[in-house]
Design a protein around this nucleic acid. Structure first.
Length: 472
RNA sequence: GUCCCCGUCGUCUAGCGGUCUAGGAUCCCGGUCUUUCAAGCCGGAGGCGGGGGUUCGAAUCCCCCCGGGGACACCA
């Protein structure tokens, strides 16, 4: 049993955190938390041209938003000396060599074909030749020597079992780029070793990198960690999920009004299932139930509809205080005055939120407009109100309105008025709703009235009455 | 082209040789409740990619085919 579990999530800050990465992070995090292990976050920012500070911040923020915290944080850009030292060692031991070929030259020689390995041209350069090139100021890359017999290899994947490669077409690959920064496979190995990573849990697209990394471990005399590969998350077209599939980054989901709880819950169930088939789960419950045994290996399609369902469920179970806090960014359009009335806002949300799937649907929501702004009755509505006994209905309601209208008062009031006029309750509710909100649908009217308050109800009814009459 | 992974309703999945005429969830459709819409509740439609084996018995094990995906950079 021995060592404690140490896992890591190693994103490169060349873009926002997308859902695939988020799921990998989540699974690693859940596993670490479940086993009382350590979750390491490592920013792989060795590609200076593509890495950006804002992406680093975005990724950290997105992880925090999801509720995933890390125990240790490293930046590869701050460890360049470490990689150089190990590269020097491999050079010294004859396990790597300096390569002066430029990418252009190689592309030329190999005709830019895919799957064609580097021809090893610089492998046997004489020391003199190397010195000469260096003296000329040429900047070499460092390539790792891949012995022919190693190209048939295998490793034991802790999720998939033995994975065997019959004949890899990996030539001597670059471990240090000519600009002095390490290439991915090298930095990754050095760091996983130095950071004491015991298990590498990542997505399937890294399976083909695993042999290279294992060779590196062998060359450096280190025991490799265990490797396990998760499935891929695909778009609806079954292609690797990318920007063109719409909102696929965590920050976009947040901006679209998804709750972190919902995103986490959805992602957890994408490639993993609860032993008892439970579906709505909190982060704590996920930690409690998580295990590698229930991980699914077939690729999953990212299903927005399903995410929306999870969001509805989590929206429904969110305490009103937290709901208001989460909804606030989507309520700015209501104006300062409305925003200041927390009590009314909370009640209004309780009424309106059950009808939305995402918080962004609150923006310009007609039910909210009806609650916070006095309606302008359309000609259609005015015409409707002038038909039949509708004006009488409104007048009677106004006449019988108690000085303080509560939620429980409306129904008896409506029944009474309906009875007096020989109408069905619905024939009273309908014009009342129209006059009050300008719409023929919306939340329970009694609740709407209570939120509006007696004064406002009276004002709206009077106004509706006046306008309808003047139009007639 | 080479190598690797995967294959249960449209989607997410349960299933780890018999309890499966394959269960749940979502989506879709219908009904119900309600003053309306939504939610809720009830019901319906919908699947083991194909072919060979192994076995008394295969969704479950093996092989082939087919299909889908991924990787083949001085990107990570």
């Amino acid at each position: 049993m021995g060592r404690e579990l140490r896992v890591r999530f190693a994103p490169s800050p060349t873009g926002y955190l997308h859902v695939g990465g988020a799921r990998t992070a989540l699974f690693n995090w859940l596993w670490a938390r479940r086993e009382g292990g350590v979750f390491v976050l490592r920013i792989e920012d060795t590609d200076v041209t593509r890495s950006e500070r804002r992406f680093v911040e975005g990724i950290l923020k997105a992880l925090s938003w999801l509720g995933l915290d890390w125990d240790e944080l490293y930046y590869q850009s701050g460890r360049l000396d470490v990689y150089r030292a190990y590269a020097e060692r491999l050079l010294r031991e004859g396990k790597a060599y300096r390569c002066f070929c430029t990418p252009d030259e190689i592309a030329q020689r190999l005709k830019g074909l895919r799957g064609v390995e580097y021809d090893g041209r610089c492998r046997d350069l004489s020391p003199d030749q190397v010195e000469k090139y260096l003296a000329e100021g040429r900047k070499p890359a460092v390539r790792f020597i891949v012995p022919e017999e190693k190209k048939h290899t295998a490793y034991l994947d802790f999720l998939r079992g033995e994975i065997e490669f019959k004949r890899l077409t990996t030539g001597d690959f670059v471990i240090m780029k000519s600009d002095g920064t390490p290439a991915y496979n090298f930095a990754c190995v050095v760091d996983d070793y130095e950071m004491g990573i015991t298990h590498v849990l990542r997505a399937e697209d890294h399976i083909s990198n695993t042999p290279k990394q294992i060779w590196l471990y062998e060359a450096l005399g280190w025991e490799p960690p265990e490797f396990g590969h998760l499935s891929m998350i695909l778009g609806p077209d079954k292609r690797k999920l990318s920007k063109r599939h719409g909102a696929t980054s965590v920050e976009e989901l947040r901006d679209h009004g998804f709750l972190p709880q919902a995103v986490v819950n959805y992602l957890a169930l994408l490639g993993w299932s609860h032993p008892e088939g439970k579906e709505i789960l909190s982060l704590e419950e996920l930690v409690e139930a998580f295990s590698l045994e229930r991980v699914t290996l077939s690729p999953q399609i990212f299903d927005f509809e399903r995410l929306r369902w999870f969001n509805r469920k989590h929206l429904a179970r969110l305490p009103s205080g937290e709901l208001l806090q989460a909804a606030e960014p989507f309520l700015k359009w209501l104006g300062e005055e409305a925003l200041a009335d927390r009590e009314k806002l909370t009640k209004a949300l309780g009424l309106v939120v059950p009808s939305v799937s995402t918080l962004s649907e609150l923006v310009g929501h007609p039910d909210l407009i009806a609650l916070f702004r006095r309606p302008t009755l359309s000609n259609e509505v005015l015409n409707e109100l002038s038909q039949g006994k509708k004006l009488e209905v409104l007048e009677k309601i106004v006449a019988r309105l108690p000085s303080r209208l509560t939620r429980d008062d409306l129904r008896p009031l409506v029944r009474k008025v309906a009875a007096e006029l020989g109408l069905k309750p619905r024939d009273v509710f309908h014009p009342l709703r129209l006059a009050l909100t300008g719409r023929d649908k919306g939340p329970e009217l009694a609740a709407v009235c209570e939120i509006l308050g007696t004064e406002e109800v009276l004002a709206r009814l009077s106004q509706a009455l006046a306008t309808t009459k003047s139009e007639r």
